[in-house]
């Protein structure tokens, strides 16, 4: 009897804690629905006939999935071709961003020269410059140089606009690591290029991971520069396929939804596989940025 007496407050407390926990989980579940339900709706209606969208139900059960929507997306939507373009542009851009930002950061933090702070600040200024302000004049410049309508016209600005953040993350990280190993390597007469690749890169791994992830997301999803600088179909990147396809199949919503689903898929799959690294990388990048 006595035991219940003493136990009761903590028993109540336990119930309360349990209740709290369920409320917390419930709220999170609601938010989960808010985050993914529109996407489920999208996938759902990509599997039915276009006119079912005008029916009463807000979800339908595709008794017989209309895979031909996906067939259209793959053929006329040219998703595979755009995917390849996206992969090429993204990998080259991200590779260059990493390489250049490591080199620059090393130059800014470890090399001794008068103007290093000034130049570092100039690069960091890029944080604040909206990409859209450069669209008009870059377009003219690129066409004068005859590099518009080639992957180069995307890679250059993608690299340029991701450099400030990358450099910021790299310099921040470099400041926290001691340079004893480099010192001894340099003493041993190691050249600067070998030093970079054999010593600096491995040490910077976490920062590089962060840079890869943040710039990958930026570059992979970029739309307005791709829409402005590229003209012919063969170099277009994935985000553009939806835009293009919407014109061609303006009356077929299901097919449009199929293209949207397919374009969202690669980054979604990558995210599911790498989600721990990605969330960690983003958080690290943002807090430092």
């Amino acid at each position: 009897m006595t035991s219940t007496r003493y136990a009761s407050p903590s028993y109540n407390g336990k119930i309360k804690a349990k209740a709290f926990r369920y409320i917390q989980i419930l709220l999170c579940t609601l938010l989960t629905i808010g985050c993914v339900f529109p996407l489920i709706w999208l996938v759902d209606f990509s599997l039915v006939k276009a006119n079912e969208l005008f029916g009463k139900n807000f979800l339908v059960w595709p008794k017989k999935p209309h895979w031909e929507n996906y067939y259209l997306a793959l053929t006329d939507g040219k998703v595979p071709q755009y995917l390849v373009n996206s992969v090429i542009v993204t990998f080259v851009s991200v590779g260059l961003i990493v390489l250049l930002s490591v080199m620059m950061s090393y130059g800014f933090t470890r090399m001794k020269w008068k103007m290093s702070k000034v130049f570092l600040n100039i690069v960091l200024l890029g944080f604040m410059i909206p990409i859209h302000a450069t669209l008009l004049s870059n377009f003219i410049t690129f066409s004068r140089l005859n590099i518009q309508d080639s992957p180069i016209a995307l890679i250059i600005p993608y690299v340029a606009f991701n450099l400030p953040q990358a450099t910021f993350i790299m310099t921040g990280f470099m400041d926290t690591i001691p340079n004893a190993i480099e010192e001894s390597a340099l003493m041993d007469g190691c050249g600067i290029i070998r030093l970079l690749f054999t010593i600096v890169f491995p040490v910077l791994k976490p920062a590089i991971m962060t840079v890869i992830i943040t710039s990958f997301i930026n570059v992979w999803n970029e739309f307005i520069m791709a829409a402005t600088y590229l003209t012919s179909d063969r170099f277009r990147t994935l985000p553009f396929s939806i835009y293009n396809f919407a014109g061609m199949y303006s009356s077929n919503y299901s097919a449009q939804f199929a293209v949207m689903t397919l374009s969202a898929l690669p980054s979604l799959v990558a995210y599911v596989i790498l989600n721990k690294h990605i969330t960690k990388g983003i958080a690290a990048g943002a807090v430092k940025g």
Binding site: L100, M103, F119, A133, T134, N138, I156, V159, F161, L163
Partner: peptide, 21 residues
């Protein structure tokens, strides 16, 4: 060698267009 390539790209695609604008 370390700083120039990055600065060049940055200047070409970010700073220069703003001056042109």
């Amino acid at each position: 060698f370390l700083v120039f390539p990055g600065l060049l790209v940055f200047t070409f695609a970010v700073l220069y267009p703003i001056f042109m604008s």
